[in-house]
């Protein structure tokens, strides 16, 4: 049974089709990336999963069930527009958020304290939210999203506005939760983050799915079999090698595309036997960013 199955959901805002026949399904324990440029329909899709917005067409099943209000207790959702009550005390606030997920008051308080300790915010428990730095407030947001041990975690642009320390912090938490078997969906327009974290991705643009599947598979499919070379000497001969598709020469730097199915090691051996002084040889994998730009970039340029 899938953690989430989305079938043909469509949402109009007046005449604007924000989400257009989007379908995907996510197996339990997967870290799933919903990717796309700004305005692609990521937030609308996530809000529809959370039943904050109702789709005009299509069906969403969460853990095999149609949406029920009580399902919200098993989901941790971090929206893109997120905030806290500035005048509430930290512990009271987290307790309130926990209680809103149907935890008992005592249980919510215990978990809040436990998480605050873990995030080194223990001494701030009785301070007001507005006295905290922005980075601390972000940590509190994460605690609020995961403190009730949800089976499904949905985070909309979780990395936006985070400093490097908190980015790493969040990444560690996400990986830990994944290890515990939680299903995680995160949306981002930062491809390098998605590349490092996600098992599967779904790339949407202008409300439509343009690419989806396991990340490794996608990368293999879009791989250009490229080699980056830094050298000193005359490298003109490389262009004439039979298994080289093309080569861009920049004086002492060259981007080479090998023909399909040619292992980069073949070129490596060839160069080792030549008189060329090679200082760097890199069999580059196509990055998600390249794929993203290749698919989406054309229209935005």
């Amino acid at each position: 049974m899938e953690a989430i199955a989305v079938k043909g959901i469509t949402k109009y805002y007046d005449d604007f089709k924000a989400v257009d026949e989007i379908s995907f399904s996510i197996a339990p324990g997967t870290l799933f990336g919903l990717l796309g440029p700004n305005g692609a329909g990521k937030t609308t899709t996530m809000r529809m999963i959370m039943n904050i917005i109702v789709p005009d067409r299509g069906e969403i099943r969460i853990m095999g069930e149609k949406f029920r209000e009580s399902l919200k207790d098993r989901i941790g959702y971090l929206p893109e527009e997120r905030g806290l009550y500035p005048k509430m005390k930290l512990l009271d606030h987290l307790q309130f958020l926990g209680e809103m997920k149907s935890l008992s008051g005592a249980e919510a308080k215990r978990l809040a304290l436990q998480w605050l300790e873990r995030f080194n915010l223990g001494s701030w428990a009785h301070k007001k939210v507005q006295e905290l730095s922005k980075g601390m407030q972000q940590k509190v947001q994460f605690i609020g999203t995961i403190m009730h041990a949800p089976d499904l975690i949905i985070m909309d642009e979780p990395f936006s506005g985070l400093d490097p320390i908190n980015t790493k912090f969040l990444k560690d938490i996400l990986l830990e939760l994944k290890k515990e078997g939680k299903t995680i969906i995160l949306s981002t327009h930062l491809m390098d983050q998605a590349e490092k974290l996600c098992d599967e991705i779904c790339l949407i643009n202008r409300g439509k799915v343009v690419l989806k599947g396991p990340l490794q598979e996608i990368k293999r499919r879009y791989s250009h079999n490229a080699v980056l070379l830094e050298y000193r000497g005359d490298a003109a001969f490389i262009q004439d090698l039979p298994y080289v598709e093309s080569a861009d020469e920049y004086g002492n730097y060259m981007e080479i595309r090998l023909k399909d199915g040619v292992p980069p090691a073949k070129l490596f051996k060839e160069l080792a036997n030549s008189s060329l002084e090679v200082s760097r040889f890199e069999a580059s994998e196509t990055s998600l960013n390249d794929i993203f730009i290749e698919i989406v970039g054309g229209e935005h340029a």
Binding site: I75, G83, Y85
Partner: peptide, 13 residues
């Protein structure tokens, strides 16, 4: 303005 609404909507309607 404090952007808490959607956080609350993740728990209730």
């Amino acid at each position: 303005t404090s952007r808490i609404i959607e956080v609350l909507l993740s728990s209730t309607d």
